[in-house]
Amino acid sequence: MSTAADAVQDDRRDSAPAVDPAAGRSDGPASPGAGAAALRRRGRTILVTGVLVVVALYFLVPVYWIVVAASKTTDDLFGTHGFLFAGNFALFDNIAQVLAHDSGIFLRWLANSVLYAGVGSLIATYLAAAAGYALSTYVFRGRNLIFGLVLGGVLVPGTATALPLFLLFSQLGLVNTYWSVLIPSLVSPFGLFLCRIYADATVDRSLVEAARLDGVGEIRIFHVLGLRLMVPALVTVFLFQLVSIWNNYFLPLVMLTDDQLFPITLGLNTWRSQTDRLPEFYELTTGGVLLSVIPLALAMIVLQRFWRGGLTEGAVK
């Protein structure tokens, strides 16, 4: 009797599905629900990937067209397909013409844009960080009112303030100088808003109080503690301000008349305006546009590592 019962139990154990102790699940067939969930995940992955591909093409196709256009002569620019390279690859010749035209005026425009965008972005980022940190850390009467006024400043377009600024700078004698473009670039309402929100989320009040108990001054706390914790937000503000100032056209158009003070945007527009009379300016314009994109691309590549570092800050393995 016991032998027969043992044989029956052995048969049941042999026919039962194997269980993986580490995985905690059987090797039997998957349930229909698990298969449907896997299909949904795969569908979402395909959809998200498709949307990202479309967005990438939206941004990369204009850059590709500029590279193709800058490699053509004026005849090839209008006589060949816009997205295909011509037989005569004239990219380096066009770039040489851009750099040599009018005693190298393009290099002067490039230096002006670096001055306006680089210095303006650095100072605007620092001021936005200081104001945002102060509004987040210190409690005083009227703090929310000030923040509300800043939010209102975000809604005001730059073109609406260009004419009042021109009248003001005319009274001060600053029109047609570097200051007329640089000073308005030092204020970033969006940067202040972002720094205030980011400081609320990252700057721990206990760390600030501990530093105060150790006798550290408020300015040093801001520079040593606040700025380091706000690095991802500062990089974001800097890049937004850099792109905004670099691509700014209307304010320099209103403020400047001397072509030696022009930024790249205004200088390239003067070349484009001469293409009706002198078709060779098409080559100068397309080559100049290609060169004007390179500094922004380099800034994005160099600074993106700070975003990655900020996303993992405070993470636990």
Rank of each mutant, 00 (worst) to 15 (best):
L284T: 04
V231K: 13
S206C: 04
W271G: 08
F250R: 00
D276I: 12
W271D: 06
S206D: 12
F250N: 09
L256C: 10
I264V: 15
E209I: 06
P279H: 08
R228K: 10
N269S: 12
T257D: 12
Y198H: 11
D214M: 11
F238H: 04
E283P: 01
S206V: 11
R228M: 03
V289A: 13
V243Y: 05
D204C: 02
L253K: 06
L234V: 10
V216R: 10
A210Y: 03
V289E: 06
S206R: 11
N269Y: 09
A201I: 00
E218V: 14
T286V: 14
D259P: 15
N247K: 06
L239F: 07
A233Y: 03
L268N: 03
L253W: 02
I197Y: 04
V254I: 14
D204A: 14
V231C: 04
N269D: 15
L213Q: 08
S244F: 11
N247D: 15
V237D: 10
N248L: 00
V235N: 10
P252S: 03
G215L: 07
W246H: 11
V289Y: 04
P263H: 04
G226A: 09
W246D: 07
L213I: 15
L242P: 01
S206E: 13
T257R: 13
L266P: 00
Y198I: 03
Q260L: 07
L266F: 00
R220V: 09
T265W: 00
A199S: 14
D258I: 04
W246A: 08
V203Y: 02
W271S: 09
L284M: 09
E283Y: 00
N269V: 09
A199V: 14
T257S: 14
E283S: 13
E283V: 11
N247I: 09
G267Y: 01
H223C: 02
A199L: 07
Y198C: 01
V254R: 11
D214H: 10
V231W: 04
A210S: 15
V254S: 04
R277M: 09
L213G: 01
Q274G: 09
D204Y: 07
L207E: 03
S273A: 14
P252L: 08
L239I: 14
L256T: 06
L261P: 12
G215D: 10
L207C: 00
D259R: 10
G288R: 12
Y198W: 01
M230K: 02
V254A: 14
L213D: 08
E218N: 09
I245V: 15
V289G: 13
L253F: 13
T236E: 05
T275M: 14
V203W: 03
Y249A: 03
D259F: 06
A211Y: 09
F238K: 01
S273K: 02
V243K: 07
D276P: 01
F250M: 11
V231E: 10
I219N: 03
Y249I: 06
G217H: 03
S244H: 13
L234H: 00
S273I: 01
L229H: 07
G226K: 03
V237C: 08
P252A: 12
Y249Q: 01
S206P: 05
T285K: 02
G226W: 04
L225P: 05
F222R: 08
L229A: 07
N247L: 15
V231I: 15
Y282T: 04
F281E: 03
